[in-house]
Simulated scan of single mutants.
Amino acid sequence: MSENCIKREPNVSKKKIFVSLLFVPGFYLMVLFTTGLIVFVGSGLIFIIHYFVGKFLGELGFAYFGLILLDALPFFGMIFGVVSCFIAIISMFFKNKQFEPAILINPHDHPKLRDLISELSVKMDSQMPDAIILHVKSKFFVSEGKINVFNGTAKGRILAISYPLLHVLTVNELRAIIAHELSHFTGRDLVFHRFVFPVYKGANKYLEYITSLFNHNGRRRPIFISIPMILPKVLMEYYLKIFHKYNMKISREMEYRADYIASKMCGKENFKEALSKLISHGNVFNRLIDEQMTEKIVHGFQFENYFSFYREHVETYKKQIEESLGKALRDHEVEYATHPTLKNRIVNLPNVDSIYDNNEEALDLINSFDYIEVSMTKYYNYYLNDNAIHF
Rank of each mutant, 00 (worst) to 15 (best):
F52H: 08
L120F: 06
K264N: 05
Y64S: 10
L134I: 10
L37T: 07
N106H: 10
N4T: 10
I289F: 02
E181G: 02
N283S: 14
N217Q: 12
L116M: 15
L365A: 06
M293G: 03
L29C: 13
L190Y: 07
N387T: 03
F195R: 07
I178L: 08
V41R: 06
E144R: 10
K146E: 15
A131V: 02
I230G: 07
S91K: 13
I38K: 04
V298C: 03
G202V: 01
N148K: 15
L70P: 00
V196H: 07
D331R: 14
H50M: 09
M376G: 06
I158A: 08
S280R: 00
R114S: 10
R194C: 03
A328Y: 06
E304Y: 09
F150L: 07
F214D: 10
L116K: 12
L120D: 11
A328M: 11
I366Y: 02
G26T: 04
N283H: 11
I105A: 11
Y310C: 05
I210V: 14
L57V: 09
S2K: 13
F140M: 12
I177Q: 00
I289A: 06
V284C: 12
K205P: 00
Y310R: 03
E237Q: 15
S368T: 02
Y306I: 08
K378C: 01
L166V: 05
F224P: 01
V142C: 03
D331P: 01
T34H: 03
I242C: 11
I279S: 05
I49H: 10
G44E: 07
L174V: 05
I105R: 03
K112H: 03
S91Y: 04
Y380G: 08
G54I: 03
K268P: 01
I225K: 04
L174N: 08
T170G: 04
A72P: 02
H108K: 14
G44Q: 08
S324P: 04
N151S: 12
D259G: 10
E269A: 06
T186G: 01
F33H: 13
L278T: 13
G202M: 02
L37E: 11
T34E: 13
P107I: 11
Y64I: 07
I261G: 09
E323K: 14
N4S: 13
L365T: 13
I289D: 01
Y209K: 07
L342R: 03
E291M: 03
I68R: 00
I161S: 08
H108D: 15
T294F: 00
S324T: 05
A328L: 09
I89V: 15
G300A: 05
R8V: 15
I210S: 06
S280F: 01
M78T: 15
I90C: 00
M265Y: 11
K16G: 03
F86K: 02
F197C: 01
T153I: 15
E208H: 01
K318N: 14
V19W: 10
Y356S: 13
K201E: 12
H193D: 10
T186V: 11
